[in-house]
């Protein structure tokens, strides 16, 4: 049996699954790791919600420009062929179905592809949604990158989300340390398992996973 995957290994799996020439938005946090594994030869174009296509790597030294940042407010660089646009156009690219792929983190994903990733629902939490709801319903393919289990051991892939929802039936694949899961009309199909057997994953998630 193979070992469970590291965050970097999950990011590499996602990067390898992104089609040639795709327009891609990487959510803030862990999904930004995917950029480190993208093969530039494949012509993937990164979109950032704050108004840019053709976003490059993090800026260093003299490259740092306070007017050129990503959605996580980190300074980045331009790539050849980059473009800038205002916020209404940037979100038209999502909502209008122009963006091919987005990669988001999650608190929970349901077996129908419902996504919960913006709010824990805790009474003292300050809600902050950013662009998550627009991305969730906008990109043609919504990929989730997360650990399969929460710190308390509970599965984050669930029958029904208990956290407040970000979007309904919007996730197509879930990439985790223990497996890649495809959300299909028939149910959740395990593509590959890492560091656990199919039966162990069925047991620990409590879900009827399909082969």
């Amino acid at each position: 049996m193979s070992d469970a995957l590291s965050k970097d290994q999950i990011a590499k799996l996602i990067a390898d699954d992104i089609p040639q020439g795709a327009f891609v938005n990487l959510g803030i946090g862990q999904p930004t790791l995917v950029a480190d594994h993208l093969d530039l030869e494949r012509g993937v174009v990164l979109h950032t919600e704050n108004g840019m296509l053709g976003m490059g790597r993090a800026a260093v030294g003299d490259e740092i420009d306070e007017d050129l940042i990503n959605a996580g407010k980190i300074p980045v660089v331009e790539t050849p062929g980059a473009s800038y646009f205002h916020h209404a156009d940037s979100f038209a690219m999502m909502r209008g179905g122009h963006l091919d792929v987005c990669v988001l983190g999650a608190f929970q994903v349901s077996v129908r592809g419902d996504l919960a990733n913006w709010h824990t629902g805790a009474p003292d939490a300050i809600p902050a949604v950013g662009g998550a709801m627009d991305l969730a319903i906008g990109a043609k393919d919504v990929l989730v990158m997360m650990t399969l289990f929460a710190k308390d051991g509970s599965s984050k892939l669930v029958e029904d989300c208990t956290y407040p929802l970000t979007g309904l039936a919007c996730v197509s694949r879930v990439y985790t340390d223990h497996g890649v899961f495809k959300i299909t009309d028939e149910g959740v199909r395990l593509r590959e398992a890492y560091g656990a057997t199919m039966d162990e994953l069925r047991e620990r998630t409590g879900l009827d996973l399909l082969d």
Binding site: H86, A88, F91, R95, I126, P127, G130
Partner: peptide
């Protein structure tokens, strides 16, 4: 506080 999804915020304006 009124929290609005970012795309709806832009489009409402």
């Amino acid at each position: 506080l009124e929290v609005v999804p970012q795309g709806n915020l832009a489009e409402r304006m």
